[in-house]
Amino acid sequence: MKKRGLSDLFFLFLVLYLLFPILATALYAFATNWNNTILPEGLTFKWLASLFQDTSFIEAFGRSVLLSGGAVILAFIFVVPAIFIIVLYFPKYEKWMQTAVVMVYAFPGVILAVGLIRTYSQLGIPMILAVLGAYVISILPYIYQGTRNSLRNVNAKQLLDVAELLGASKLQAYLKVLLPAVYPGLFAGALLSFSVLFGEFVLINLVVGSRFETVQIYLMKKLSTSGHIASAVVFLYLVLMGILTISISILTKRSRGVAKT
């Protein structure tokens, strides 16, 4: 019992350690004034409201969604079909995919940014497109793991075989059987990738610069002008990430249900 009490205590400290900065930031986003007191002097929605009245924030939010969402959509158009084909028909090439996945982690953001600038700045390709392309590659680990695990969980090859033996064409087998069976896993991978890209700062800032203002760059600018507004941005960001995390968790549970069969 003593051991249990001690572990509970450590767990409580850990939770407080992790939650305290988040709660403090959230509280600061709603504080009227919080300088010489332990708790805020009052609460207000004005910082949050001012964010939604600021067109540059709305535009930055839109750019972040467009860039992150665009990269995820491109990955689903080009990368996911490739993973399907490799996992289902050419599993011997999976080792190359795994190498590519590891290489994504091997390149630090700064080196990647310098590489992108040196390679693409002289070719006349807009740097935002270069960043978009780099984003597609950078989410490869999440897309690859999500897709591969989903295909393995449902025993995809066998599902396709059965569907074909029951009279379905290859296209029908994919559209009516395989995609509906693996979509929770794919969608979870997409949400995870989106949330990772939404918080990305290094590449976009170094390669494109602050003229293409995303939420992260907007946040950096606001840090020097208003701590309350910066906190409100972080609060909104955390709410969005919370929603995405809950969605991923629900979808993952649904995938597990599929895997039981």
Binding site: Q158, L159, D161, A163, L165, L166, A168, A181, V258, T261
Partner: peptide
């Protein structure tokens, strides 16, 4: 002859049921 035209049924060890379909929908698929 393509598998879909062979008029052959197959049952696997791992069942290979379509997880997104009910029992009725699975049975009705063919």
């Amino acid at each position: 002859v393509q598998p879909k035209n062979r008029e052959i049924g197959m049952v696997f060890q791992s069942y290979a049921l379509f997880p997104n379909m009910t029992v009725k929908e699975n049975v009705a698929f063919g």
